[in-house]
Amino acid sequence: MSITLRVILIISSFIAFFLCVKKIKQSKLKVANSVTWMLGSIILILMSIFSDVVGWLSEKLGFVSPVNFVFLIMIAFLLIQTFIDNIHITELNEKIKELDHYIALKEHDEKK
């Protein structure tokens, strides 16, 4: 990995990490939901500090360049995150639907 990439990764990971902490303090983010983000940024920082390990591992796994390996991990992380979000959206959808039904039934009962 080049020095520039390592510096960019470290800086952006730190920004992501502190953004998470700030949003939790403002209670705009739940701890349970932000753990994956914080974990992701910690992994990214570790990867940019110990770039030798990443280089060795990516060579063993047959990657052309260590950068590709880093990108693959990031993409995998993003996919997992969107999948989790998708589940949350569906859950919320079901909850709103239940409320929708509840209101309709209640209104009907009150009319009688």
């Binding site: 929708d100 039904h101 009907h108």
Partner: peptide
């Protein structure tokens, strides 16, 4: 029964 939010036929 009148639903306050549109949720489609299934709902």
């Amino acid at each position: 029964l009148s639903l306050p939010i549109n949720y489609g036929l299934t709902s």
